[in-house]
């Protein structure tokens, strides 16, 4: 069966060491691979880039790194805009820019909504990650970036081979896998685990028992009147809703028997730590 190469980036595992970036530079800077790519300039291009993302507010903060190579789309928009078949997709799915044919075709850079194609001013060509196709064709099992990853955050392999590591991960990680910007509709073959989404977190405190942690308090997250998620505060009175969509209006409702319920409105334009939310005791009237 024909090979179909893909990559999985497990963001939960990436600790931002930049080895992938350095290995890529080492492979492509100053080195032409005829038929695949011409040398990457010594600075300015990021064929595999690492984006640092820190989100939340003190004291509730999360840190993650997202690795972004060429997505090797199944429906590559760069192919469509190129003339003279300067950009083409190989049988194994790798998208290659022919450096000779692509001369002067700046529209190829702009066609990529992922912004992973770079313009080489000196040589007048667009350039990008090739999944190290020149190495794969010599029998390498994975590109240099994947080989250099110390945490196994990057996994590479043949999507058509059910026994490959990548296929096994896909089979077991169902539901966890996503692509960046699915709305582009380009069907990337680089898939992700743990793309940072939005979170809403906070701490519940009983107004009458400030020294005690308000554990086991019911917290509901709802949007447009529908309860989306329900959780309970942990032993410290903390709660968290993770993996939320961006730019949505939510209401956080906190209820506990004997206490007045409280509602807080949140918009997930940013990750939000609500801080301490005080619950007051319902006054019991003497008969």
């Amino acid at each position: 069966m024909v090979k179909k190469y893909g990559m999985i980036v497990d963001i939960t595992r990436c600790n931002g060491c930049y080895n992938c970036f350095l290995a890529c530079r080492d492979e492509f800077c100053g080195n032409d691979y005829p038929g695949y790519s011409v040398a990457q300039p010594f600075s300015g291009q990021f064929w595999v880039k690492v984006i640092e993302k820190e989100r939340g507010q003190y004291p509730k903060v999360k840190v993650a790194y997202t690795v972004i190579p060429c997505m090797q789309c199944e429906k590559p928009s760069c192919v469509d805009v190129s003339s003279n078949k300067a950009v083409y997709q190989r049988l194994d799915g790798i998208v290659i820019i022919d450096p000779e044919k692509a001369k002067g075709q700046k529209q190829i850079v702009n066609a990529c909504p992922y912004r992973v194609i770079y313009w080489n001013e000196e040589k007048n060509i667009p350039q990008k990650c090739t999944f190290c196709a020149h190495l794969l064709d010599q029998g390498w099992k994975e590109p240099r970036c994947v080989e250099s990853c110390p945490t196994k955050a990057l996994v590479f392999g043949d999507l058509n081979d059910p026994d490959s590591e990548i296929s096994r991960i896909i089979a077991t990680a169902k539901g966890k896998l996503e692509v960046l910007h699915p709305e582009y509709g380009l069907m990337p073959k680089v898939q992700y685990i743990g793309i940072p989404k939005r979170f809403v977190a906070g701490e519940v405190v009983f107004r009458d028992k400030k020294d005690e942690c308000a554990a086991g308090v019911k917290v509901t997250l709802s949007s447009k009147g529908n309860a989306d998620k329900v959780t309970k505060t942990d032993n410290y009175g903390d709660f968290e809703f993770e993996g939320l969509d961006a730019d949505k209006d939510y209401t956080v409702s906190i209820e506990h028997s004997g206490y007045s319920a409280k509602k807080v409105k949140v918009k997930t334009n940013i990750d939000t730590y609500l801080g301490e939310i005080l619950l007051g005791k319902i006054a019991v009237k003497n008969k």
Partner: peptide
Amino acid sequence: WNQGRSCPRLLSLT
């Protein structure tokens, strides 16, 4: 020790 792994400073040694 490192079981094949390295770091940016080693990878840019040249």
